[in-house]
Simulated assay, not measured.
Amino acid sequence: MTTDTHDSALTPDSPALLRKTDLTLARIHSLLAEQGIRPNEVQQQMLASHVKAMVWRSYSGESLPEVDLSLFDEISPLSLRLAEQVVAWLDKLAYEEAHLLSVHFEVAKENELSSVLNP
């Protein structure tokens, strides 16, 4: 990631990485809205925390712990596809990152279903 402050060591709270996080979140919310997926306030906070960590891993190269992909068998193809798109926006992220991110999308997708079933 090229930044204006490349001479100094970046941290997860560096302005350049926070801007990248905000831009990525704005793109995610647009992507989800196109699919009618609207995270509630708590889900937005959790998603923001995850995206901030993703942006940091993209910059730092820090790896994820081993992830058992079979734990994600019940994630819908739509949620996984959307998460794969987002992960492709950032450099140096592991494929497993999409599976972790897809959980946020899947849970938010259920908001619409539960509001239809329980008006």
Rank of each mutant, 00 (worst) to 15 (best):
V67E: 05
A53S: 08
L25G: 07
K92V: 02
Y95E: 13
L82R: 02
L71S: 06
N111W: 03
L78C: 13
P77K: 12
A33W: 05
P39H: 14
A108C: 02
E34L: 11
K20T: 12
E84V: 10
T3S: 15
I75V: 11
S115W: 10
L78I: 12
L47H: 04
S8F: 10
L31Y: 06
Y95P: 08
Q44H: 06
E84Y: 07
D13M: 09
S49M: 07
D7F: 12
E62V: 01
A53L: 15
A9V: 11
Q45W: 10
G61T: 04
W89L: 09
E110Q: 14
L32E: 04
P65M: 03
L47Y: 08
S8Q: 11
P77G: 10
S63N: 08
M1W: 04
P12H: 09
V42R: 14
L80H: 06
Q35T: 03
L69D: 07
V51G: 02
Y59T: 05
A48R: 08
L100K: 07
A98L: 00
V86D: 04
V107T: 10
S63Y: 00
H104L: 03
H104D: 01
G36K: 04
S49E: 13
E97F: 03
D22W: 06
E74T: 11
H6R: 14
A98D: 00
V86T: 10
Y95I: 02
